[in-house]
Amino acid sequence: MLLFVLFLAFVQIGLFSVGGGYAAIPLIQEQIVNINEIMSLEEFSDLVTVAEMTPGPILINAATFVGMQVGGIPGVILCSVGCVIPSFCICLILAHFYYKYRTVKGVQKVLSAMRPAVVALIASAGLSILLLGLFGTGVRDIVVSNIKYVELGIFAVAMFIIRKYKVNAIAIILGSGVVGTLIYAVMGMI
């Protein structure tokens, strides 16, 4: 029964987490900590930390974490599926209309006005994560002398390789993780 309540809670969270990512956190907190009292606030903040450290959308991470605590694997499946059902349905409808009307001239023009914004948003996300990697802090708290030289070196090499040789993106990401950890380990800094 609790699982069914949770399932509904995550359907709601999925439906109302407009703006993605961090917009979902207060919603999850409301449902999980305040309304259904499944976790304490402390456990919840642990959950956010882990969700940030692992790949994947924070919403799915949270749903999986809560589902596992409450009902094991069935709980994981119910909660994760619950939180994607609303966006799945809405996006199917959007996809249908997009592919139906995207060749209409006026629609095409409106769409091309949104493309520069998307490029800008990707650029902003990329720069934020770069600064986080190089300085370990957000944009607001950067101290230039705190730059991490290992990360700077790896970034330069990764950038060179990807521009010059068109290497697989995942190989670049995993490669920088492995090489960086090795360097830190050899330097005795871990």
Binding site: M53, V119, I122, A123, A125, G126, L127, I129, L130, L132, G133, L134, G136, V150, E151, L152, I154, F155, A158, M159, I162, R163, A169, I172, I173, L174, G175, S176, G177, V178, V179, G180, T181, Y184, A185, I190
Partner: peptide, 21 residues
């Protein structure tokens, strides 16, 4: 070790994104 790997991977991710950008 996990913390370090995750920290360093960020610059790898950044390189990929900036290439696309």
């Amino acid at each position: 070790y996990i913390a370090t790997a995750l920290q360093v991977m960020r610059v790898g991710v950044a390189a990929v994104i900036l290439d696309v950008v």
